[in-house]
């Protein structure tokens, strides 16, 4: 196990110095939609202790790459993924990797809040139920309460757990989706522009939540809002035309980018 944790290739992503073993590693990843190449030779390490932000102009492939990390691209018939992606050293595209278990370990929060048309309780209980995480009702209650508390939603919904999840406000729905993702106790949480459909106050709450969740889960967040990336992340990868232009400490990327393209993007010259 442990020897697999070291990246197999030396040209590895420019990981910041003195990093502990990465949670996920990607090496030479290409993604094709039919004949069109959407991701070109991307390599990156994601660490458990950090929030990693993917920034870049629309259509640069950041969401596509995010979706390779829990194999959500499998649901797109024309998509094809090449390269090596590992979770704790295990190849997630290996034949022996069960995609159901992978997604239990790598959860995802989508751009638009997508609660199921069920009660708030049932939304959170959905994952634990399909993975058999609770022996009885009391355990399930505990899981649901803990998840909602971690998602910062408990105080707002504790008296109406039987109400429909779709009746909540947009920001609450998104936190419900985060609670739903947390409930199966994943190791990595992928967030695909989680605030783009929310107002500034709801956005602030989600950002606060990301701060609180940091350290417990490895978090990867795709955002087109550079201030957000600067506020919530410790590492930032700048995507452009399907490849990573620059990856490093968020403070470094924003204050002292090495590449002119990064600098141009951050200063608003294009994108």
């Amino acid at each position: 196990m442990t020897d697999l944790m070291t990246p197999p290739e030396a040209e590895a992503a420019p990981a910041p110095a003195a990093a502990p073993a990465p949670k996920m590693t990607a090496r030479g990843v290409n993604v094709f939609y039919g004949n069109k190449q959407a991701i070109d030779n991307v390599s990156i390490d994601v660490f458990r202790e950090d929030v990693t932000a993917f920034i870049g102009p629309s259509g640069c492939g950041k969401s596509t790459f995010l979706r390779t990390l829990n194999r959500m691209n499998d649901t797109v018939a024309t998509a094809r993924v090449e390269g090596d992606i590992r979770l704790d050293g295990e190849d997630i595209y290996d034949r022996s990797m069960d995609v159901v278990q992978l997604r239990a370990r790598v959860g995802m929060v989508f751009q638009k809040p997508n609660p199921f048309p069920k009660s708030i309780f049932e939304n959170v209980a959905y994952g634990p139920r399909i993975h058999g995480l609770a022996e009885n009702k009391a355990e399930m209650d505990t899981i649901v309460e803990r998840s909602l508390k971690r998602a910062g939603l408990w105080d707002e919904v504790k008296d109406r757990l039987t109400d429909s999840g779709t009746a909540l406000s947009g920001g609450q729905q998104q936190r419900l989706c985060i609670a739903r993702a947390i409930a199966v106790d994943p190791e990595v949480i992928l967030m695909d522009e989680p605030c783009s459909a929310l107002d500034p106050i709801a956005t602030a709450k989600i950002e606060e939540l990301i701060h609180e969740l940091r350290g417990r889960y490895a978090i990867v967040i795709v955002t087109h809002n550079m201030q957000q990336a600067a506020r919530v992340s410790q590492r930032t990868a700048f995507f452009h035309l399907g490849s990573i232009v620059e990856y490093g400490d968020t403070s470094g990327i924003f204050t002292n980018p090495r590449e002119t393209r990064t600098k141009d993007y951050i200063t608003g010259r294009y994108g």
């Binding site: 159901v100 997604r103 239990a104 995802m108 997508n114 199921f116 199966v184």
Partner: peptide, 15 residues
Amino acid sequence: VPQAMRDGSLAMGAT
């Protein structure tokens, strides 16, 4: 039924 609903469930590790 919106695709988002399907994705949401699949992303939870549901078959």
